[in-house]
């Protein structure tokens, strides 16, 4: 019992060590690669692939989440007489929380799994070993471009999610519930600060980076055989999902504490 526990501890400690080494090597090649044209030449097709896979689902989910939020919050706010400010609640939630998280989850599901499958297949069929034996570093060649694509596209996808959700909220508030369009936008402009946008941006960068690292690491360390690849994909998605929600909580708590420390409490309504 104790020895089994010890064995598992040792295994997970060594896995953490392996992951740290992986991240460290990636960061080193990232520093080398960012100024190089060929890194971007390898990244371009990935931008297209990542965007193409995720943008439609992100627009759809963003829209529906915006609709649901607006419908749900309208009655409550109207009872309190604050319905003209419902845009504020909606936008803050979208920009700070739901935009980054939804975009992150969609990225993990649509892209993270696919990256793990691709790299896992490359590992199982020894394509990664082939790169290595030809003197081409697999981390530089494969991981750095995928990391860059996820890191840089995550904020953009988050932005699209925010926009889709806000337009859906506007549609419910102004078109269905008859709130005048002028005050609706006025309160939003008044309440949303650069800080809120910054929080969403920071979160989305962290999520994009985490998804790429988890997906690539899982692919690189995938066990042989077709089931090894399948298992790595599932694990990649589940771990990314948990990491997104956990970092969202910790990062959110930390950043709002920081905000209160600097500016004091802010009321949304």
């Amino acid at each position: 019992m104790i020895s089994a526990l010890g064995g598992r501890t040792i295994a997970s400690v060594s896995a953490m060590g392996q992951l740290s080494l992986f991240v460290w090597q990636m960061l080193r090649w990232l520093v080398v690669g960012v100024p190089q044209w060929r890194t971007w030449r390898r990244t371009m097709p990935l931008f297209y692939e990542v965007g193409n896979r995720t943008l439609p689902v992100i627009l759809v989910t963003g829209t529906f989440v915006g609709l649901v939020l607006a419908v749900q919050s309208y009655d409550q706010l109207r009872a309190a007489g604050f319905e003209q400010r419902m845009g504020v609640l909606l936008s803050i939630t979208l920009v700070q929380e739901l935009g980054p998280v939804l975009a992150g989850v969609m990225l993990a599901g649509r892209v993270g799994g696919a990256l793990t499958a691709e790299l896992g297949t490359m590992r199982v069929t020894e394509q990664i070993a082939a790169l290595q034996v030809m003197g081409a570093d697999p981390i530089r060649q494969l991981v750095v471009p995928r990391f860059l694509a996820c890191l840089l596209l995550a904020p953009l996808l988050t932005f699209f999610c925010d926009v889709a959700g806000s337009l859906a909220g506007w549609f419910v508030a102004v078109r269905l519930k008859g709130i005048p369009s002028g005050p609706y936008w006025y309160y939003i402009r008044d309440a949303i600060e650069t800080w809120d946008v910054g929080v969403g941006f920071a979160k989305s960068l962290v999520f994009g980076a985490a998804i790429a690292i988890i997906a690539c690491y899982k692919g690189f360390t995938c066990r042989t055989g077709a089931e090894g690849v399948g298992q790595a994909c599932t694990e990649s998605f589940v771990i990314s999902f948990i990491v997104i929600l956990m970092t969202d909580f910790f990062l959110g708590t930390f950043l709002s504490g920081l905000y209160r420390g600097i500016y004091g409490f802010k009321s949304l309504v």
Binding site: Q127, A129, A130, M134
Partner: peptide, 19 residues
């Protein structure tokens, strides 16, 4: 190892061509 690598040629059992 990078400068030594081009002096080896390795044919993989499963070919390992880049898909």
């Amino acid at each position: 190892l990078v400068p030594i690598r081009p002096r080896f040629g390795f044919l993989f059992q499963l070919s390992a061509l880049f898909d």
